[in-house]
Every structure is written in structure tokens, then in C-alpha cells.
Amino acid sequence: MFQGNIIEKCKNNDRKAQVQLYNNYCNGMFHVAYRFLKSVEDAEDAMQEAFVKAFKKLHQYNSEVPFGAWLKRIVINHCLDQLKYDKNKIESIEDQLYEPVEVENEEFSEAWLLEVKESIMEAIERLSEKYRIVVLLFLVEGYDHKEISEILGITETASRTKLLRGKRKLQEYLKVYSNGVTK
């Protein structure tokens, strides 16, 4: 197994293997950090610090879970710690009014889909921190409620409740993009 070989070399402080492992995962982990911290500089710092933690704790990694999932959890935990201890980094996003998107035909253009995706991410950013983090972990990162409860130190019920309330807020924020077609 190629990746397993690299990880074993990293455990033995092989610098070339560490650089290779870093290069394989740095872009993906940057995007994970950016979704939480909303700043390029903060995301880069968080990613770097998470890699340092990962290399220090690499002896704790076992191959029962994919390395990328293990590393992603370190990155997310580091981002959550940064959000907890540095409230200045959390930027409140002012309520914005959006014009409904008019689609001329039934087919959705790539530009329109990109705009919708951006609108969804903007709406997620508008959520209060208690909802935003659970929504990001569940909808974007793909964690289940058990994993979210472990990461955040809350009950699974609290995770479900925060997700439900966060999704309701998202629906309110995104209502304008439904172009008048609501159920």
C-alpha cells in the first residue's frame, strides 16, 4: 500500500515522505479550514498547525480509518478551538437583500448553479456560530450526529436540534432564491 508506506516513513521522521504527505493533503485541508474560519490567512495558519499536530501524533494513527479522515478531524478540531478562543476572528455578516434569480428557460446554466452554491455558502456563513458549525460539519463535511456530538462535546440530540434550527434559518435566508416557488 503506497500511502501506508509514506505514513510509516513519516513516523520515522523521513522529511521527504512528510513533504509528500503534506503535498497530497494540503489543498483539501486548506478548504476545510477556510469553510470554518472564512479567512485565507487564518485557514493557512490552522492548516499548518494541524499538520504539525498530525505529524507529532502520527504514532497514534491506525489504518482503521482513512488517513484523510483522521487528518480532517484534526483540522476541524483545531479550527473549532481557534473559534472558541479567538472570538475576534468570527465576523458577523450583515443581512443582505438578494434579488431573485430569473431563469429564462428550464435548463439551469453553470453560472446560475455557481451563483446558487455561493448563495448557500453565504447563507451558511450568516448563521450564528452554534448553528453554522453543526450545519458545516453535517452538510458540508459529512459527519453524522454521533461524530458531531463527540467533536463538539454536545449530545446527539443537541446536534440534531441545532442542525434542524440551522436548516430552518437557511431556508429563510434562501427563500429569495426559490424564485417564488415555495411549498
Rank of each mutant, 00 (worst) to 15 (best):
M1S: 15
N5T: 14
I7F: 04
C10A: 14
N12I: 07
A17T: 13
Q18P: 12
Y25K: 10
Y25M: 11
C26P: 08
C26V: 13
N27H: 10
M29F: 07
F30A: 05
H31D: 09
A33M: 09
Y34K: 07
R35I: 06
S39W: 04
V40P: 11
A46H: 01
E49R: 08
A50T: 03
A50F: 00
K53Q: 09
K53F: 06
K56N: 15
K57R: 10
H59E: 14
Q60H: 06
N62P: 06
N62A: 03
E64Q: 11
F67T: 07
G68L: 06
L71Y: 04
R73D: 14
V75L: 00
H78A: 00
H78D: 00
L80V: 13
Q82A: 04
N88P: 09
S92H: 05
D95Y: 13
Y98A: 03
E99V: 11
P100D: 03
E102Y: 10
V103M: 08
E104V: 10
E106M: 07
A111I: 08
A111N: 10
E115L: 12
S119A: 10
I120A: 13
E125L: 12
K130P: 07
R132P: 03
I133V: 06
I133L: 02
V134K: 13
V135A: 04
L136H: 05
L136S: 03
L137P: 05
V140W: 04
G142R: 04
H145Y: 14
H145T: 13
S149Y: 02
E150R: 13
E156W: 01
A158L: 02
R160I: 02
T161S: 12
L163I: 07
Q171K: 00
Q171V: 00
V176C: 10
S178Q: 15
S178G: 12
N179C: 04
G180P: 05
